[in-house]
Design a protein around this nucleic acid. Structure first.
Lengths: 194, 194
DNA sequence: GCTAAGTTGAACGGTAGTGTTCGGGTTACG
DNA sequence: CGTAACCCGAACACTACCGTTCAACTTAGC
């Protein structure tokens, strides 16, 4: 630790730099989970030493970036109405969250690599519960199949969104079409009756 | 390049060491795509210098490991009868290939990180075509839905297998149950009629 | 406008990986 | 059995990253 960092009131420009650094960290880690501190600092338009003045280590920075992207997602998803037909709710959830999930999953991967095991799952627990509850409700109401465990259905949704994001990144898939394909596929996979 | 390496006839023990190194490379890279040359050499029970005697660089070694795992898979999958009902064929294909895919996908990721872009896709083209052809045949025969592009359906299968493997690795999913869950899910997702 | 808070580049030490060289030791194979 | 092929540990140079220190500079905020 090079600087105090424990002060309650910080100068305005310092606070602003912290924001710039976090933005840059999310951007860089989304593209490359192994992005170096130098690269992040440069992307933030800030010296490397300045960065270390605000974040004592790379691990702390990565965790901060992860919590930021998670809280951002939480804010965006908190306003959604998921109380109607589970199928419609799932469509809504996918349409307005798939890109977010895709982006955060890259940061999540970065965190997975450098944070103590379990820490990531701990931070990620609450956002994951929203999806899980929707799926369980759908199963209870007979809208989704119940012959497969809910945890698996959750996992399916997660992996399909990540996969679609990867396909978009490699140019195999058109970004605009992704939400429709994901919804169509997931809803078909969740449908009752074999 | 430290040694000739261009000789047609190699001593038996040298050839044997190459095999040991490739085995170790596949094992190590499956667990950690960033596995170091030292770790691979140690796992192979061989000196690091010996390894460099057979593979001039890490990249070459990774590519060799990838082609090995791909040809192994090719041998295993070549004997399968995929001519019947596309649904049954898909079940057979999943059951006997998902673990293989899961393992090779980690090596593939390692290759993706250190080989020139496009090279991986080039090597991976032939195995991917088998799946793609089965899916297209299923669409033509009306067994699989045709309202989504075949490339996407292929991608879905791929990502679900990778995801299931990841879940098994993290302990969220029982290895024995994976093939059934994948088959049930994919077949439901591929089913005709909305 | 003064001052403390903040920023900055240069530089250092430490770690880890890659690829290479060297010298001496083994061993396959004719 | 002899020799060439091969193996090996130690050590080297090189690169990249992390985290830190320092001394000088800029600037926010009273």
């Amino acid at each position: 630790m090079t600087r105090p960092l424990a002060k309650q009131t910080r100068r305005a420009d310092a606070q602003h730099n912290v924001e710039k650094i976090l933005d840059a960290a999310v951007n860089c880690l989304s593209r490359d989970p192994d992005a170096s501190v130098s690269a992040i600092a440069q992307a933030a338009g800030v010296g490397r030493v300045t960065l270390y003045g605000h974040f004592p280590s790379r691990d702390v920075l990565v965790e901060a970036a992860l919590t930021r992207v998670l809280t951002e997602g939480e804010e965006l998803l908190a306003g959604l109405d998921l109380t109607g037909d589970p199928r419609d709710a799932l469509r809504v959830l996918i349409r307005s969250s798939w890109l977010l999930i895709a982006q955060s999953s890259a940061v999540l991967e970065a965190a997975q690599a450098s944070l103590p095991p379990g820490r990531v799952h701990e931070l990620h627990a609450e956002p994951a519960r929203r999806v899980d509850q929707l799926i369980r409700r759908g199963q209870d109401e007979g809208a989704f199949r119940a012959d497969l465990p809910a945890s698996w259905l959750t996992s399916v949704l997660h992996h399909l969104m990540k996969g679609a994001a990867a396909d978009v990144a490699t140019g195999q898939l058109d970004r605009a079409e992704a939400p429709r394909l994901i919804s169509e596929t997931v809803l078909a996979a969740y449908r009752v009756d074999g």
